[in-house]
């Protein structure tokens, strides 16, 4: 009896480990249909964040061109390569990994499948990029710059906060872009504005996000910007409880707290993925290149919804956006470029 129960339990574990959804693309190729397959990161395709955005972009492409879309979700990190391999064995013309956690898997699988095109979102292989791989990266600092400017123009206490998940190049873009925007507003208003940066060292712990943001609010910050994934739910909760403003990330997060979300630093992964896929569909070579998308490609930015800020601030942010697009303002993305920016603006 005991043995039987053990076997039963082991079975449950095995089933739940291997339980990944699998939308099988039809295995007949050479029918003129362009096929795109996508592997989202652990968030899955309904993460209400960038995986979902990527899939929505692909669905738009399908509706416009008749391309066939499929995706495979992963249950754990080790499934990434496995799922990419599965797709590479199928008839897909382009296989997209969403999220920089897939970079190793893409590198590995693309080396085995030189006849297939691969793309990765949020990661650049730089100069060493393989001939069949395309990097898709964002100038997220440009969106963060705009929300930083809005925060700097809206703050009454002249103190704002930034909550990061775990420090990396992507989160740096948000932090330094935001700080640059705040600084820009502070020069315009001719008052010093303090930015408090704090990292949760997690992308999951909502309680910690809430604690950090509550601390910032009680410390005198009246606006907090977060780029911290699941930690952000706690940050938004703290804003709601304290009746203060919060700035969302990746998509318009105002649906989470309509009266407290000032604006959001949006990253339209879908638009970028669509642009890259279209290039390939039009017969252009995309392999071996890294594409960078920002305000000028409408891949980052702020949502139209701006009911919590004065009209003139929103309009000024749009003007600023144009200046970034035309290259009049170059937004810093890491500590070094931020220091340079600071000294250039001081003069």
């Amino acid at each position: 009896m005991k043995k039987l129960a053990n076997i039963f339990l082991a079975g449950i574990i095995i089933i739940s480990l291997s339980g990944c959804s699998w939308n099988d693309p039809e295995s007949v190729a050479n029918d003129g249909v362009f096929r795109i397959a996508m592997v989202p990161d652990m968030g899955g395709v309904n993460d209400q964040s960038f995986n979902q955005s990527a899939l929505e972009g692909l669905y738009e492409l399908r509706d416009e061109t008749g391309a066939q879309i499929s995706y495979v979700e992963s249950k754990q990190f080790s499934d990434f390569a496995l799922n990419l391999d599965k797709l590479a064995d199928g008839p897909s013309d382009l296989i997209i990994g969403v999220g920089n956690v897939l970079s190793d898997a893409i590198e590995e699988v693309s080396a085995r499948n030189l006849d297939k095109n691969f793309a990765i979102v949020d990661y650049s292989f730089g100069e060493d990029i393989a001939n069949n791989v395309t990097g898709i990266v964002f100038r997220a600092q440009e969106g963060a710059f705009l929300v930083g400017y809005i925060a700097g123009m809206t703050t009454k206490t002249n103190k704002v906060g930034f909550v990061g998940g775990i420090k990396n190049v992507i989160i740096d873009q948000f932090q330094y872009g935001f700080e640059a925007g705040v600084l820009y507003a502070s020069k315009e208003r001719k008052v010093p504005i303090k930015v408090i940066n704090q990292y949760a060292e997690s992308f999951a712990d909502a309680a910690k996000g809430k604690a950090i943001a509550s601390r910032m609010y009680s410390d005198g910050c009246d606006i907090v910007f977060h780029a911290a994934g699941g930690v952000g739910y706690g940050v938004i909760e703290a804003a709601k409880e304290s009746g203060k403003f919060v700035i969302g990330v990746d998509r318009d997060q105002s649906y989470l707290a309509p009266d407290n979300v000032l604006t959001s630093s949006v990253k339209n992964v879908g638009t970028a993925v669509k642009l890259v896929a279209k290039e390939l569909m039009n017969g252009n070579k995309i392999g071996g290149k890294n594409y960078e998308f920002g305000l000028s490609e409408h891949c980052v930015g702020i949502p139209e919804n701006h009911k919590n800020m004065p009209e003139f601030v929103y309009n000024k942010a749009l003007t600023l956006s144009k200046q970034v697009e035309t290259g009049q303002i170059t937004v810093p993305y890491d500590e070094e470029s931020f220091e340079n920016y600071k000294s250039s603006i001081d003069n």
Binding site: A206, G229, Y233
Partner: peptide
């Protein structure tokens, strides 16, 4: 956790 600390369930609501 989901009715007090935050006010919705997310996949990372319980993280350790």
């Amino acid at each position: 956790m989901t009715l007090g600390v935050v006010s919705q369930f997310t996949p990372t609501a319980i993280s350790g």
